[in-house]
């Protein structure tokens, strides 16, 4: 048990880093109502851009900013493919993700793995100093949540929420829905790339494969977070924080499962199963819950048992 507790800070630090990407996924999946698969690619783009720049001697804050902007560009590409060419959002995301695989390799000059050593580079945090990573990660999450909360309270932010909610209504109210979708995708992927850039520094390397299944982990955090936090409040701030909480819970579960000795090759399947359960159970409850309850009630009545 003590061993498990010892690994917890590390899990929490990873959870915080992935929470940044979960918030990005939340913006597309919940706010814009789009399942955006670009993230598997833009996550890597963020990691690789940061790794290349930092090992090239750039200041890590500047490198993080540039990696974030690179993510925004990835979102821009998906957005334009979707809105200008009329390709469904999910396919547009897959296409960009595909293209990013090559682009990421070009950025890393063909290397599939770039080491960001803490000994020869200055990085924001690393897994050698978990406490450091924890407070910095929490601070970053706090900043992002605050900025997003303020942004979605402005006229522009509200119009993006309306776009995701009801496009017919948004257009009838003079909102440029196409522009808003592109903007939302850019913000989302910027956060995802930031998350990738943070992870590359934390784990000490960027890998061309580090984004595989990232969308599922992001979705996992979002669905866990919303399921828990929506019980507390429907407030937008609470829901954003919920993504962070979801990310943390995901990594605690992850750590617990590893500790219990599950084959790590099965972890991706576990993530997929969590998403399926969290999305599927509410649906089953909605469609069959009432029917089953009625059926059971009828049985009770038929037995003459519970007739008060």
């Amino acid at each position: 048990m003590l061993d498990f507790l010892n690994t917890l800070p590390g899990a929490l630090a990873l959870g915080l880093i992935w929470s940044v990407m979960a918030i990005g996924v939340y913006i597309t999946y919940k706010v814009l109502n789009i399942a955006d698969l670009t993230v598997d690619g833009s996550f890597v783009t963020g990691g690789i851009v940061a790794a290349v720049l930092i090992t090239g001697g750039m200041n890590f804050i500047l490198a993080l900013l540039i990696a974030t902007l690179a993510g925004a560009v990835c979102g821009l590409i998906t957005g334009l493919i979707h809105t200008l060419l009329g390709i469904p959002a999910i396919l547009a995301g897959i296409l960009t993700q595909m293209a990013l695989w090559s682009i990421n390799l070009v950025i890393s000059s063909g290397k599939s793995n770039i080491a960001v050593s803490v000994y020869s580079n200055t990085v924001i945090f690393s897994q050698g100093l978990v406490g450091d990573a924890l407070w910095k990660g929490a601070l970053i999450i706090g900043l992002i949540v605050a900025i997003l909360y303020i942004f979605f309270g402005t006229e522009l932010g509200a119009s993006i929420r309306a776009t995701g909610n009801n496009q017919d209504m948004a257009r009838a109210q003079g909102i440029n829905t196409k522009m808003n979708i592109v903007l939302g995708l850019m913000i989302s992927n910027a956060l995802v790339a930031l998350s990738g850039a943070l992870l590359a520094q934390y784990q000490g390397f960027a890998d061309i494969n580090m984004g595989k299944g990232a969308i599922v982990i992001g979705l996992c955090a979002v669905v866990i977070g919303t399921a828990i936090m929506s019980k507390i409040s429907q407030n937008f701030l609470v829901r954003l924080l919920g993504c962070a909480v979801g990310g943390l819970i995901y990594y605690i579960i992850f750590q617990a499962v590893v500790f219990l000795g599950l084959d790590t090759n099965l972890l991706k399947m576990l993530a997929a199963v969590i998403v399926i359960v969290f999305l599927g159970v509410p649906y089953l409850q909605k469609t069959y819950g009432a029917k089953i309850k009625k059926h059971l009630d009828n049985r009770k009545i038929a037995k003459g048992g519970d007739q008060k």
């Binding site: 942004f151 509200a158 119009s159 003079g174």
Partner: peptide, 22 residues
């Protein structure tokens, strides 16, 4: 927009034809 409040909906309508500012 069903997920937004009554006042948010009205505010969206009131801004019709104006640039949505940040």
């Amino acid at each position: 927009a069903t997920d937004m409040t009554v006042i948010e909906n009205l505010a969206l309508a009131r801004g019709r034809g104006k640039k949505r500012s940040i």
